[in-house]
Design a protein around this nucleic acid. Sequence first.
RNA 1: GCCUCGGUAGCUCAGUUGGAUAGAGCAACUGCCUUCUAAGCAGUAGGUCAUGGGUUCGAAUCCCGUCCGGGGUACCA
Length: 603
Amino acid sequence: MRPKIIKMKIETIIQSAVQEAVTELYYFSPDVTQIQVQNTKKDQKGDITIVVFPFVRISKKSPEETGREIGNYILKKVNSVESFEVVKGFLNLNIKNEYWINGLVSSFNESTFGIAEHSEDTKTVMVEYSSPNTNKPLHLGHIRNNLLGYSISEILKANGNKVIKTNIVNDRGIHICKSMYAWQQWGSDRTPENTGIKGDHLVGECYVEFNNHYKAEVDELVKQGMTEELAENNAPSMLAVREMLRKWEAHDLETIQLWHTMNGWVYKGFDETYKKLGVDFDKIYYESETYLVGKDEVLRGLDENIFFQKDDSSVWADLTGEGLDQKILLRSDGTSVYITQDIGTAKMRYNDFSIDKMVYVVGNEQNYHFQILAVLLDKLGFKWGKDLYHFSYGMVELPSGKMKSREGTVVDADDLIEEMISVARNMSAELGKLESLSQEEAENTFRMIALGALKYFILKVDPRKNMLFNPAESIDFNGNTGPFIQYTHARIKSVLRKAAEKQIELTIDIDIKELSTKEKELLKTISLFPEVVKDAGANYSPAIIANFIYELVKEYNQFYHDHSILLEEDAARRNFRLVLSATVAKIASSGMKLLGIEMPERM
RNA sequence: GCCUCGGUAGCUCAGUUGGAUAGAGCAACUGCCUUCUAAGCAGUAGGUCAUGGGUUCGAAUCCCGUCCGGGGUACCA
């Protein structure tokens, strides 16, 4: 067993050295926040930079002189520092090559470099994502949600948490009844089997059908002189749907059966899409099973005077003490509202698992909702209520603007994935790639590339921001894209295969002294990976991972272009470059895995 | 109205707790395959960081105002 080596980061060592230096030189102990240790900018000489300005006031000397004095001190105290240079107010330190090479060796050696393992104090985090309605198929908006949810789960795991992925399916309510009613009314012989239409799409079609008929009815009534509001509430199909919902809540057998059947179609369809997207769940909750629990919780709250009742017998929470408004929890007729089921779901989760932290991956239009939910759960006594984390992400917009289901301007998830695969297939044929692979292997690679492109495109942008998806342009395979990263990986794997063919074995005895600029850059970037994973976890941001991997493989491609690997005659250097390549491939893969993106061996 | 998030190159996006000359990709133009995969590499061009003030050695970043845009503010979900 290898003893556990506690490797101190060079930044940390330097930071305390600076503190020491300033204390000893100027008799003043600076605050840690004043000591800025950062990576030297690419266009400057040096590896680590210390900003001198904050100490000028203490030293009462020029920035240059202060920098020199601190630099000299560090040079004497920190072994890894080779030399330094002061440019303006910046102290640039050169770190010994040995240090970077040691870093490479450990990242090459450690199978889980940068990925934390579970420990004694592992926290259990539950991540809720996806959360679809069962009245229509998944679209691009859901894709962003699913990819973010899956990725953030992986990132939290990589930061040492135990993660339970969960999904709350909205399987009840008036919108589901609309699809059911349309099916009954305008073609009750349709099934996914006899129409050949995927179940969720069939139900979605019914939903659209309903809206078209309904709209026609409303228009007709308005033409007859009714006000719009009245017409909307009195259109025959709306009345029928309300009756259907009433029957559902009264457990009417026929209604429940139809509901089961149609939801079954939808689930089967969803499962296919989830599988294609490569996302999954450890536990799925259904709103039909949680909303009554929520209602009970609200009534308990009423009992315990946490909530109050108005004269019309509706139940409310007074959140004015928290700087929020009053919030309705049960309607005057006793039925539950949206937030009621969230309380119920929370309660069930609370009973089912020992959760330390709850993360909800839900769009930013629900910021207010989750602010309220946090307060309500806290009032009701759930320990993680107050600090639940709403992973609030921005919308996906199209060049034409917002996606609207009712206007048919949504990008369907299944269609999009198929289209991406077909683009990957054509692109491959055009480039004359993968001809040596079997049909099956080739298809699998097209799938990886297509999904890599889609996932990376979506995950590379800051989740908090709205993003634009242009179907015509977004399916790019060059530049800052998933396929670019996959391609670099395939290239490295190809080199490694050839090395193996030539019986060249990789060894961790790196016996070189000199490093080229590109080689050193790569070593420096590699060393950042663990920090990047932590950063991504702390900020709930797959984008941080994505941008890092891009940076890494971009640098690798420059290195690859400028240096021979297998043709290098010096065996030690050749070995170094092979280890370097293998490590880049490994880190890129493990980073992409955190994004849910697979890496092909060849492409 | 109030709350909230945003505005960086023609387009899509990065930009660390405030640090050096604001960076990538796409699109445009120009080079590089007899050599480990050209889905690559190199170069040219492209900016009043919405705007006006303030804080300071230093602001795309922090504070205040203004303009523009998204979202929220339901007995919808």
